[in-house]
Nucleic acid binder design. Sequence first.
DNA 1: ATGGTCGGTCCCCGA
Length: 266
Amino acid sequence: MKIATWNINSIRKRVGNLADWLKRANPDVVVLQEIKCQEPQFPRLEIESAGYKCEVIGQKTFNGVALLSRVPPIEVTARALPGDDTDEQSRYVEAKFATSAGPLRVAGIYLPNGNPANTEKFPYKLGFMRRLRERAALLLGEEELLVMGGDYNVCPTDRDVYDPAGWADDALCRPESRSAFRAMLNLGMTDAYRTLHPSEHAYSFWDYQAGAWNKDNGLRIDHWLLSPQATDRLRACGIDKAERGRAEPSDHVPVWCELDAELLKA
DNA sequence: ATGGTCGGTCCCCGA
């Protein structure tokens, strides 16, 4: 089965790009970030026509995530990241699916950007990352297939950014952000892309500004982190870079994994 | 190349 993440930067603006890509890429499960609308405005009919069920965690203007799947999940297990009841931003969705290899938990994440790093936005990001690590630790205890994908807004190492020195103080590259990302790996999770492509300078995001795309000035900030059980079934991982070159693109492109497991009807 | 971005919303903010 194939699972993908894509920060779509407005689902209403991009539903045509999404439908075209769904047809070409044919993923079984997709997590979307920055849908930038509430649930009633979500273009459910277009996506259902493409053959996908939709779980929508909407928010007006900002943020918002969704989970698309070829079959309905057994259960939507979370519509917000646990650990802070005062957090009203729509940034997390999680569901359990049936597969030929047993239960599969899929989390979709839109991690806070954290800039400017000298404002309250940065501690909010680090707090979210602490809660995400705690959630991962809890789910890892089940010793099942677990994949946590999304826009992490973390560039894990200098290999993952075109200009490490220029970005060193940015919240995407700061040592505190990288340390919190490594803490997820230290629980036993695997960065799927980096594990299968150890030395590539591959990016998943190029800013709209300053001709970043044309100069390949990108960052790798969209990731799939896998439990040991999922890593054992990891067959491939890739980045659909060509999406950034299409008309009216998102500033992010899809990142996908293939697992040796078949998605089943619940 | 001496300027070079989007989307949603409301007259600017977030990325």
